[in-house]
Amino acid sequence: MIEVRNLWKRYPGVTALGGISLTVEKGQVMGILGENGSGKSTLFKILAGVAHASEGSASISGQPVGIQTRRITSYLPEVSPFYDWMLVSEQLEFLAAFFPGWDMDKSHELLGLMNVDSHRKVGTLSDGQRARLKVVSAFSRPSELVLMDEPLGRIDPPSRRRILETLLSEFRVGEQTILISTHLVSEVEELIEEVVFLRHGEIAVSGNIEELRQNRGMSLSDIFEEVVS
């Protein structure tokens, strides 16, 4: 599904990604974990096609990242990317024009689940509601890949886990591949199958969660602590 080969991203004075290689199988739910500045968001931006790699390659479903892959990818950036002046319903209709197969009924069902009023202007929503709107926009269409960059950060802690569980169990379409980046390890630990720990733009540890736990004899949170330190 995803093939990343020797991917580098350099900004003036900073190397955000230092030649990482990665393979993600179709249908996997993978966690990309790491502290702030480890390169998680940069990796997601390149896979989503909103940033260019300095070197190396990334492909999704056999195609290099570009217009075709953007069509089959749902990207939830860390920031709120919506237009403040649009109504929530207008924002979703705007997006629906670009993605064939957008399910507006599902959008409204998700809005209800997320407790977001479709008649409100995006600019009047709280940070948490904007984060929920991102989730709605990502799961309202049958994309093959969902990139969730810190999706839970601005949602209130009691709701985080419940929302993610509901999304993955009830609203995931077919064999959607899902990449979740976060530093809140405990909240995704039970949801992900594979994990990649990034440190300073390089892969520090990766593998199947169960195997990692057994081999190292510690929880995912402890492995995270070890990687970070």
């Binding site: 217009i67 075709q68 990207y75 990317p81």
Partner: peptide, 14 residues
Amino acid sequence: KGQTHYLLLSLPVS
């Protein structure tokens, strides 16, 4: 400024 370029650049259009 509004960070909406994330949305625009992720659309499947040139």
